[in-house]
């Protein structure tokens, strides 16, 4: 039944996207397409500096008698253009996304992107800090924030990167502790304590607070922590456990969940995809517009809507919009 509703919903999103695309944004996209070509040209020009430098470098090696190369100089002339090119492309993506997303979100009903100045809201940072779901962090950057009503429920979706920073006089290191999506949905059941569902690999808190649940497959994937054994079982029913396993099988990232502050907080961590390295190229970007696809190509936006739909599927699968006691 729920699958049938989902299929209908997906079909309706696809139809809406087609309508929005042909009637509202196609003209606007032509302007963005011109910009895309301009940004690609800038990016290409900056990368062109690398072969020019290599040619000049070999020319210098052939013609000079004593070879005295400063390695920093070489790194600067290779990494510099690469970084510049990356930032040019990133700028296009951000700009295009901020223009297109509001229009695309109208396909999903009552959803909207939160403007940049509100994205830096200190309340959100304080909220993340209070959450036991995510590890302690020092810096927080919100890439995207989408809010909306889904089946009469307020849904907040954040794409965030949280990092731990260690500074000393001589060194500075940044370790990413979370990079991915954080979905906040009001909890329809009454709860008084914090209940955490963490992936098995991550050990946190006191083992005394571990809640041993009945489902062996669920126990293979998750550990549950709570101060109240009864409340944890009230929130995590056997049906809920099997729904959560379904979500793990969707392989969106490392899924953890908490019931705290009156919300169900779902964290989808893609940190592992960066192999623990702080390299922007490796980072999974949610809701991104591809630079290598024409801005006027509808497939570009289908992917964004599919990602959003996947998150709404998580909410549907967990039946967070209904308090049916299961």
């Amino acid at each position: 039944m729920s699958n049938e509703i989902n299929k209908k919903q997906k079909k309706s999103f696809a139809n809406k996207l087609r309508n929005v695309f042909t009637e509202e944004i196609k003209e606007h996209l032509k302007v963005i397409e011109k910009e895309r070509i301009r940004y690609i040209t800038y990016s290409f020009l900056s990368l062109l500096a690398i072969p020019i430098f290599i040619v000049l470098f070999f020319f210098y090696l052939n013609n000079s008698e004593s070879v005295n190369i400063d390695i920093n100089f070489v790194v600067f002339f290779i990494a510099g253009p690469l970084a510049l090119s990356y930032f040019i492309l990133k700028r296009y993506k951000t700009k295009a996304k901020s223009q297109i997303m509001p229009l695309l979100l109208s396909c999903l009903g009552d959803f909207k992107c939160v403007p940049k100045e509100i994205k830096k809201n200190q309340d959100d940072k304080a909220y993340f800090k209070r959450l036991k779901l995510i590890p302690p962090f020092d810096s927080c950057s919100v890439d995207d924030r989408i809010v909306g009503q889904y089946n009469n429920l307020q849904v907040d979706i954040y794409e965030v990167e949280l990092a731990r920073i260690q500074r000393s006089r001589k060194s500075y290191s940044k370790t990413i502790v979370f990079s991915g999506l954080l979905v906040k949905v009001p909890l329809l059941k009454n709860s008084n304590t914090v209940t955490l569902i963490k992936p098995k690999a991550i050990k946190i808190g006191d083992s005394k607070n571990i809640v041993k649940l009945e489902d062996p497959e669920f126990n293979k994937h998750f550990d549950v922590y709570s101060l109240d054994q009864v409340e944890a079982r009230y929130l995590i029913t056997t049906a809920f456990m099997s729904r959560l396993i379904k979500i793990v099988k969707m392989k969106m990232g490392e899924v953890s969940l908490s019931f705290e502050e009156g919300y169900v907080n779902i964290a989808i961590d893609n940190k592992k995809q960066t192999l623990g390295l702080n390299i922007p190229f490796l980072k999974k970007d949610w809701f991104e517009v591809s630079i290598f696809q024409k801005a006027t190509d509808i497939r570009n936006y289908r992917k964004i809507l599919e990602e959003l739909q996947a998150i709404l599927d998580v909410i549907d699968n967990l039946k967070l919009t209904q308090n049916i006691g299961l």
């Binding site: 059941k189 009454n190 041993k212 649940l213 009945e214 054994q229 009864v230 409340e231 944890a232 079982r233 009230y234 029913t237 006691g325």
Partner: peptide, 21 residues
């Protein structure tokens, strides 16, 4: 009543789990 019933069922699950242990 429904909420109390859900709590009772959760408490019974806790009891069964503790008894198994």
């Amino acid at each position: 009543y429904n909420e109390v019933e859900e709590h009772i069922s959760a408490a019974r699950r806790f009891y069964n789990s503790a008894l198994t242990q």
